[in-house]
Computed example of a mutant assay.
Amino acid sequence: MRRPSQRLAAWIRKRAADVRDGIGASGGTKRRFADSESGIATLEFALLVPVLLLLVYGVAEYVNAADHRNKVSALARTLADLTSQNSTQQITLATMTDNLRAAAPVLAPFDATLATIQISAIGVNAGNATFVCSTWPTTGGLRTKGKTTTVDVPTNFQRSGARFVLAEVQMDYKPLFATIISRLMEKAEAFNFRWSESVAWPVRGGGSQGTGLDAEVVMPNGSPCDPKLT
């Protein structure tokens, strides 16, 4: 039979061994956690996904904006060409209405009703005095009839008697995810901007008003350019 002192010594040794085993197990767990790589892929995925989504959105937005810009430019050229080919000098309202119908297919899939369009007959007289001789539409457009200094006259038209068609198109661009951006950002309107396209086009139809004067077309309810104005 063991003495009390022996039993106490055995109990102390047992407790010491239990403590050592516990410390060893804890240290091993810590080392195994530090050496484990099972969660790295998940962490990298969580960090990279927002960046990848931002890149995908940026590319999509750039392509969409470039396509929108090209369509606005194509519409201005199309309307200028259609107007310049009018077989008679005076263009009827029905003809201009038909020409304007080109906006929907040219701008598709963008909403053509958001475009501001104006077609003008421009005349250049002596001293390069430039006039908006007639314009359509006459209200709600970008220009009014009369002398102007805001038309950028191409070099080949900078001469007395020059006549040409000026087609101007303006159209607002809205981001692909405008609703989401407006909710996430207080100043989302910074992502909205307006494309402006101005195309000067030679007259291919119409008729001349006199010697030395280019052929011209006259917008609905308008009048020919007066070569005497300066």
Rank of each mutant, 00 (worst) to 15 (best):
I91E: 00
T29V: 12
T78V: 07
T97D: 00
T78A: 12
A102Q: 05
L93N: 05
E44I: 08
A129W: 01
H68M: 12
A17Y: 06
D81P: 06
T135R: 11
T29P: 03
T83S: 13
R32T: 13
D21S: 15
L48A: 15
L79K: 06
N99F: 11
I91M: 02
T83L: 08
A74S: 14
V124D: 05
A17G: 12
Q118R: 06
V63P: 01
I40P: 03
Q90C: 02
A65S: 13
K71L: 07
Q90E: 10
E37S: 05
Q85M: 11
P50F: 05
T113Q: 05
A34K: 11
V19P: 08
L82P: 02
T97N: 06
T130R: 01
A112P: 05
L79Q: 04
E44V: 13
P50L: 04
L100I: 02
G27I: 15
I122D: 11
D21N: 10
F45H: 08
E61V: 08
A46V: 03
N86R: 03
Q90W: 02
T42Y: 10
L54D: 02
S26P: 07
P50M: 04
R31K: 09
R101G: 14
S36T: 10
S36Q: 06
T88A: 08
R31L: 13
A102P: 02
D18S: 07
Q89V: 03
L107V: 00
L75V: 07
P105V: 01
L54M: 14
G39N: 07
S73N: 11
F33A: 14
L107P: 02
V19R: 15
G39H: 07
D81S: 02
Y62G: 05
K30W: 10
A41E: 10
G24F: 11
P109V: 07
Y57M: 15
L107S: 04
D21R: 13
R20E: 15
I23S: 13
L100R: 06
T42K: 09
T130Q: 03
A112L: 08
R101F: 09
D67E: 08
T116S: 10
V106Q: 07
P50V: 06
A129I: 12
L43G: 10
K71E: 03
V51T: 09
L79M: 09
A126V: 07
L55I: 04
V49P: 03
Y62T: 13
V59D: 08
I117R: 01
E37D: 12
G58D: 06
T42G: 13
S134E: 01
M96T: 01
I91L: 00
L52W: 08
T92I: 01
V19C: 13
